[in-house]
Deep mutational scan, measured.
Amino acid sequence: SSGAIIYTVELKRYGGPLGITISGTEEPFDPIIISSLTKGGLAERTGAIHIGDRILAINSSSLKGKPLSEAIHLLQMAGETVTLKIKKQTD
């Protein structure tokens, strides 16, 4: 049976990049997913974020019904501590 787990990851960026690339579309209900991780970057080092994971919220702002451009804007405005709500498929 296919299921999913949902969890929250807190990234402290200390002025540096998060080390993630996200992808999606401008269709508001398409998923926003992690499309790549910078090798040795902040997100990869947590061990908790993987390519293909879906981002449900950024700093408690839900991405439900929001296009990719809004998600990118939220990441850019997120500040030093970025909290990502992640949904991972478990097959």
Rank of each mutant, 00 (worst) to 15 (best):
S1P: 02
S1E: 07
S1W: 04
S1V: 15
S2W: 10
S2L: 12
G3S: 14
G3K: 14
G3Y: 09
G3T: 14
G3R: 07
G3A: 09
G3M: 12
G3V: 09
A4T: 14
A4S: 15
A4L: 14
A4H: 14
A4M: 13
A4R: 13
A4F: 15
A4W: 14
I5K: 13
I5E: 11
I5S: 14
I5R: 15
I5T: 09
I5F: 14
I6M: 10
I6Q: 03
I6E: 14
I6W: 06
I6K: 08
I6P: 06
I6D: 15
Y7R: 11
Y7F: 14
Y7C: 09
Y7P: 01
Y7M: 15
Y7I: 14
T8F: 04
T8R: 05
T8M: 05
T8A: 07
T8G: 02
T8K: 01
T8H: 07
T8D: 14
V9W: 05
V9D: 00
V9C: 03
V9P: 04
V9A: 14
V9R: 03
V9Y: 00
E10D: 08
E10R: 06
E10S: 08
E10Q: 08
E10K: 12
E10P: 05
E10L: 07
L11V: 12
L11T: 03
L11W: 08
L11S: 01
L11I: 13
L11A: 00
L11N: 00
L11Y: 04
K12N: 11
K12Q: 13
K12Y: 00
K12R: 14
K12A: 07
K12V: 11
R13Q: 04
R13T: 09
R13G: 10
R13Y: 05
R13D: 08
R13L: 07
R13P: 14
R13W: 02
Y14F: 15
Y14W: 14
Y14R: 15
Y14P: 10
Y14M: 15
Y14A: 14
Y14D: 13
Y14H: 12
G15F: 07
G15M: 14
G15R: 10
G15E: 15
G15L: 13
G15W: 09
G15Y: 05
G15T: 15
G15A: 10
G15V: 03
G15S: 14
G16N: 09
G16P: 06
G16E: 14
G16K: 11
G16M: 12
G16D: 10
G16A: 10
G16I: 03
P17Y: 04
P17K: 09
P17V: 01
P17A: 08
P17S: 13
P17I: 04
L18E: 03
L18A: 03
L18R: 04
L18Q: 00
L18N: 04
L18V: 05
L18D: 00
L18P: 04
G19F: 01
G19K: 02
G19P: 02
G19N: 04
G19Y: 00
G19H: 01
G19M: 06
G19I: 01
G19A: 05
I20K: 00
I20C: 06
I20W: 05
T21Q: 14
T21A: 06
T21Y: 07
T21G: 15
T21L: 05
T21W: 01
T21P: 00
I22R: 00
I22F: 08
I22N: 01
I22W: 00
I22M: 08
I22K: 00
S23A: 06
S23T: 13
S23F: 03
S23I: 08
S23W: 04
G24M: 10
G24H: 09
G24E: 12
G24R: 07
G24S: 12
G24W: 14
G24T: 12
T25I: 02
T25L: 05
T25H: 04
T25F: 00
T25Y: 06
T25S: 13
E26S: 12
E26Y: 05
E26R: 08
E26F: 02
E26Q: 09
E26W: 02
E26I: 04
E27S: 11
E27H: 12
E27A: 07
E27N: 14
E27L: 09
E27V: 07
E27M: 07
E27T: 14
E27I: 13
E27F: 14
P28K: 09
P28E: 11
P28A: 07
P28D: 12
P28F: 05
F29S: 13
F29L: 13
F29M: 13
F29E: 10
F29R: 12
D30G: 13
D30T: 09
D30N: 07
D30E: 14
D30K: 09
P31T: 05
P31K: 10
P31Y: 13
P31N: 12
P31M: 08
P31H: 08
I32L: 06
I32K: 03
I32R: 03
I32H: 05
I32A: 00
I33L: 11
I33K: 11
I33E: 12
I34Q: 00
I34M: 00
I34G: 04
S35M: 13
S35V: 07
S35T: 11
S35L: 03
S35D: 11
S36V: 02
S36L: 02
S36E: 08
S36T: 11
S36K: 13
S36W: 00
S36M: 08
S36H: 11
S36I: 03
L37I: 14
L37S: 01
L37G: 05
L37W: 02
L37N: 02
L37K: 02
T38V: 15
T38M: 11
T38S: 13
T38Q: 05
T38R: 05
T38A: 14
K39A: 11
K39E: 02
K39P: 13
K39C: 05
K39R: 14
K39G: 10
K39Q: 11
K39S: 10
K39W: 01
K39T: 09
G40T: 02
G40N: 14
G40F: 01
G41H: 01
G41D: 01
G41N: 03
G41E: 08
G41P: 03
G41A: 02
L42P: 15
L42D: 02
L42W: 06
L42C: 15
L42Q: 14
A43Q: 03
A43L: 01
A43M: 03
A43S: 05
A43F: 00
E44F: 05
E44N: 03
E44I: 03
E44H: 10
E44D: 10
E44P: 01
E44C: 06
R45W: 01
R45F: 03
R45A: 12
R45N: 11
R45E: 12
T46D: 05
T46Q: 13
T46H: 14
T46N: 15
T46L: 08
T46C: 09
T46K: 05
G47H: 06
G47I: 01
G47M: 04
G47N: 10
G47R: 12
H50Y: 04
I51V: 10
I51N: 05
G52F: 01
G52R: 04
G52L: 04
G52K: 01
G52N: 06
G52H: 05
G52E: 02
D53S: 04
D53P: 03
D53I: 01
D53R: 02
D53L: 00
D53A: 01
R54F: 07
R54E: 09
R54V: 08
R54Q: 05
R54P: 03
R54K: 08
R54S: 11
I55P: 00
I55S: 00
I55L: 14
I55N: 00
I55W: 00
L56P: 01
L56E: 08
L56F: 05
L56Y: 05
L56S: 00
L56G: 01
L56V: 12
A57H: 04
A57L: 01
A57K: 10
A57F: 04
A57D: 08
A57Q: 15
A57T: 10
A57V: 03
I58F: 02
I58G: 02
I58R: 02
I58E: 01
N59Q: 01
N59W: 01
N59P: 02
N59L: 01
N59A: 02
N59G: 08
N59T: 01
S60N: 14
S60D: 12
S60G: 13
S60Q: 13
S60I: 03
S60H: 09
S61Q: 11
S61L: 13
S61C: 13
S61W: 14
S61I: 11
S61E: 11
S61H: 09
S61G: 07
S61P: 01
L63W: 09
K64G: 11
K64T: 10
G65N: 11
G65A: 11
G65M: 05
G65D: 07
G65W: 05
G65H: 14
G65R: 06
G65Y: 06
G65P: 00
K66M: 12
K66P: 01
K66G: 02
K66T: 09
K66C: 08
P67I: 06
P67L: 05
P67C: 10
P67M: 04
P67K: 11
P67S: 11
L68S: 07
L68E: 03
L68V: 10
L68F: 09
S69E: 11
S69M: 05
S69I: 05
S69H: 06
E70T: 11
E70S: 13
E70A: 10
E70F: 12
E70R: 13
E70P: 02
E70H: 11
E70W: 10
E70G: 06
H73R: 14
L74V: 15
L74F: 12
L75F: 15
Q76R: 13
Q76G: 10
Q76K: 12
Q76E: 12
M77N: 10
M77C: 07
M77R: 14
M77D: 12
M77Y: 08
M77I: 15
A78P: 09
A78Y: 03
A78L: 02
A78T: 05
A78G: 12
A78M: 07
G79V: 06
V82F: 15
T90P: 14
D91V: 15
